[in-house]
Computed example of a mutant assay.
Amino acid sequence: ILNTNKQTLHYSLAGGVVMAVGVWTLVLKSDYISLLSSKTYAASAYILVLAGVIVMVTGVLGCCATFKEQKRLLRYFILLLCIFLLEILAGVLAYIYYQQLNDELKQNLKKTMTDEYNQTNSEHITKAVDKLQQEFKCCGSNSSADWAESVYIRSGAKGRKVPDSCCKTITNMCGIRDHPSNIYKVEGGCITKLENFILDHLKIIGAVGVGIACVQIIGMVFTCCLYRNLKAEPY
């Protein structure tokens, strides 16, 4: 029983790790999710959160089952199977999106930034773009020249040539001057920075999903063996 409880405790800890990765992606990196047209990245994170919760619940049920030796509780094998499928799904989605990300960003990021920045009901996009340009020290999707096509800049923007978030040192109206000494001029623009950032996180999501799923295979085998042993015992 002691070894079994240790095993279920390990599952609970693994569930905490899975859930933490999902929550970290959704909460701390949620601004960038709004810049993506596809929901696959967010879906992978939500799946990890759900799988993590189920793993932790399963760990508790496993402890109860082995401590009380109630055979019916060992049927939580079905939960282990659900977790396994969810984590594999998260890993597969991350892999698929990994292959599609470059094309998506090329097709949509520039349009999102130029059409929706500082527009009505697009505050989340504005916040995400400002954070993107400041955090990654870049300006525009492909280059700072992209902002010349922006609805915000073309409408006047009080004389700005780029948003103030392009500036190396942000001050009010600093976007009026688009000289390299004042704004970020990064080769490849923000699209390259954002792509590398998301690709790194997709690797983490995929690795965690598939890695924990492999551990769950051991858990399912262990549960089946334990269930059969208890089933063989007389009441």
Results as ranks from 00 to 15, higher is better:
Gly22Ser: 07
Ile88Asn: 04
Ala43Ile: 11
Leu81Met: 12
Lys71Cys: 11
Leu74Gly: 12
Ala20Met: 12
Lys110Met: 06
Ile54Lys: 05
Thr112Gly: 11
Ala65Ile: 05
Ile96His: 02
Trp24Met: 09
Thr58Ser: 14
Lys110Gln: 13
Ala65Thr: 03
Tyr98Lys: 11
Asn108Ala: 05
Gly91Asn: 03
Ile83Asp: 14
Arg75Phe: 15
Gln99Met: 10
Lys29Asn: 14
Tyr46Gln: 09
Leu26Glu: 09
Met56Pro: 01
Lys39Gly: 07
Ser44Cys: 12
Ser30Leu: 01
Arg72Glu: 06
Ser38Val: 04
Tyr41Pro: 05
Leu85Thr: 12
Tyr98Phe: 11
Gln70Arg: 14
Ala45Ile: 09
Leu89Asn: 06
Val17Leu: 15
Ala45Met: 08
Cys63Met: 13
Val49Trp: 07
Val55Tyr: 13
Ala20Tyr: 05
Cys82Asn: 08
Thr25Cys: 10
Leu89Met: 11
Tyr98Gln: 12
Leu105His: 02
Ile83Ala: 08
Leu80His: 10
Gly52His: 08
Cys82Gln: 01
Lys68Trp: 08
Glu87His: 06
Asp31Arg: 14
Ala42Tyr: 01
Leu109Tyr: 09
Glu69Thr: 09
Met56Cys: 11
Tyr32Phe: 15
Gly91Glu: 02
Val27Met: 10
Ser38Phe: 06
Tyr41Ala: 09
Glu87Lys: 04
Gly91Tyr: 01
Val21Pro: 02
Gln107Ser: 15
Tyr46Trp: 14
Val27Asp: 08
Val49Phe: 05
Tyr32Ser: 02
Val53Asn: 04
Leu61Ile: 15
Asn108Arg: 05
Tyr41Glu: 06
Val92Cys: 02
Lys39Asp: 14
Thr40Leu: 12
Tyr97His: 13
Leu61Glu: 04
Ile78Gly: 09
Ser38Cys: 03
Lys106Pro: 00
Lys29Phe: 06
Val23Lys: 03
Leu26Ala: 10
Cys63Val: 13
Val57Arg: 02
Gly91Val: 01
Ile33His: 06
Asp103Gly: 09
Leu50Val: 15
Val49Leu: 11
Ala20Glu: 02
Ile54Asn: 10
Asn108Ser: 14
Leu105Thr: 03
Asn108Pro: 00
Leu79Pro: 05
Gly52Val: 07
Thr112Trp: 08
Gly22Arg: 09
Phe84Glu: 08
Ala94Trp: 00
Ala45Phe: 08
Lys39His: 12
Tyr32Val: 03
Leu61Gly: 07
Val92Phe: 02
Met19Gln: 11
Gln99Tyr: 03
Gly22Val: 04
Tyr76Pro: 00
Cys64Asp: 07
Leu105Gln: 01
Leu80Thr: 07
Thr25Tyr: 00
Ala90Leu: 02
Thr58Cys: 09
Asn108Lys: 13
Phe77Asp: 09
Glu69Val: 06
Ser38Ala: 14
Ala43Val: 10
Ala94Asn: 04
Lys106Asp: 15
Val17Trp: 03
Leu48Trp: 05
Ser34Trp: 04
Thr25Ser: 12
Ile33Pro: 00
Ile47Gly: 07
Lys29Gly: 01
Leu93Gly: 02
Leu26His: 01
Leu36Tyr: 01
Ile54Glu: 06
Val60Ser: 09
Lys111Glu: 15
Ile78Tyr: 14
Tyr76His: 12
Ile78Leu: 13
Ala42Gly: 11
Gln70Phe: 08
Ser38Ile: 05
Gln99Ala: 10
Gln100Asp: 12
Ser37Met: 08
Lys29Ser: 04
Phe77Leu: 14
Leu93Lys: 01
Gly22Gln: 05
Ile88Thr: 12
Ile33Cys: 01
Phe67Gln: 12
Lys68Gly: 00
Leu93His: 03
